[in-house]
Simulated assay, not measured.
Amino acid sequence: MPIKSIGVIGAGIMGNGIAQVCATHGLEVTMIDINDSVLERGIDTITHSLERMVKKGTLSEDDLAQAMKRIAVSTEYQKLVNLDLVLEAATENQSLKEKILHDVDELVSKETIIATNTSSLSITKLATLNSNPERFIGMHFFNPVPLMSLVEVICGLQTSPMTRDSVIAFAREIDKHPITVKNAPGFVVNRILLPMINEAFFVLSEGVASPEDIDVGMKLGCNQPIGPLALADLIGLDTCLAIMETYFNSFNDSKYRPAPLLRELVAAGYLGRKTSRGVFKYQRKAP
């Protein structure tokens, strides 16, 4: 089934990024969140992102206007009823995602594909909340969505081949590169990436090097475009901690134990770029 209309639940950094990419590729998008102010911030983020593309010459003014016309916003799940795909892109919190997915399942048609943009949670377990688990699947986009080409497509035990094929075709339609991944904690990329980031916090807490030198070391020594600590700030330290806790609980293996410094920073509310302070400090954007 070709996917031509999509609902995105969540207007935050992942949700608005997914909405932007879909709209610029000709799809009709409905973006849902809990209140109008969150939706306004999401739309502002998309607008500024597209304006930067216009300045760089990669998008025309007309393309910007057409893309924005394709994005509708609402606080009502009822707007999702007749869409081809509904993608949940809320915070990486199991109970929150479960509630959203349960509410969506009660509203949409049996033909609508329901996907979750999770980076660590079990697709098979989340699918049990669905009255038609064959149409449930994982789609893990990467931040920032407009720039990162990879999408991990994760099938649960119940996911049908038709659902998988439709989602893979959809990912290619929006110029993403899908890889098919088994349902396992962390899937592929984060299973490798997050333990590396976590180890950087252990190295920092032991005073082996400064945060700046740790990041420079990994950038110049491993040819990484961004150091692990700066990347943690970009992802969000609370998200990094939540993922490591999922691994630790799932594998029962001490190698996935979250670094105490990571826990301490999250407890202090130093969550990274989104709070203007994490491992590093950042200037707050003007309102």
Rank of each mutant, 00 (worst) to 15 (best):
Q94D: 13
E98C: 13
F142Y: 14
T91W: 13
K125F: 02
L157Q: 15
L80C: 06
S109E: 13
H102K: 11
D165V: 05
A127F: 01
K110Y: 09
V145T: 10
L83F: 10
Y77R: 07
E111M: 06
R135C: 05
T159Q: 13
I113W: 01
L129W: 11
L87E: 05
E134M: 13
S149E: 14
E106M: 15
N132E: 08
A115K: 00
D103Y: 01
T124A: 01
K79Y: 00
K99A: 13
L83S: 14
E88F: 12
I114N: 04
S149G: 07
E92M: 04
P144S: 09
S74Y: 06
F141T: 06
N117M: 03
K97S: 12
T128H: 07
K79Q: 09
F136M: 10
S160E: 08
T118K: 01
M162L: 14
E111Q: 13
L101K: 05
F136W: 03
E106Q: 15
I154L: 08
R135V: 05
Q94A: 14
A127H: 04
K125Q: 15
P144K: 09
M139V: 09
I100L: 09
T91Y: 14
T159C: 12
V167F: 07
R164N: 12
E76Q: 11
N130V: 10
S160P: 07
P144V: 11
A127L: 03
L96Q: 14
I113D: 00
E98N: 15
L121V: 04
V73E: 04
N130Y: 05
E92L: 09
A115V: 02
S131K: 15
L107Q: 12
T159F: 13
T163S: 15
M162P: 05
E111F: 03
G156C: 09
P161I: 07
M162A: 15
A115H: 00
R135T: 14
E92A: 08
S166R: 03
T159W: 14
F136A: 03
V153R: 09
S74Q: 11
S95A: 15
G156R: 07
Q158K: 14
L126K: 00
D84N: 10
M148H: 10
T91R: 08
T112N: 02
N132W: 03
N93F: 06
N82Y: 04
S120R: 01
L121Y: 13
L121M: 09
T118Q: 01
T124V: 05
S95D: 14
T118V: 02
S74D: 13
C155L: 10
L107S: 02
A90Q: 10
P133E: 04
K99P: 03
A127I: 04
F141R: 01
I154E: 11
A89K: 11
M148K: 14
F142R: 07
S149V: 06
L126H: 01
V108F: 00
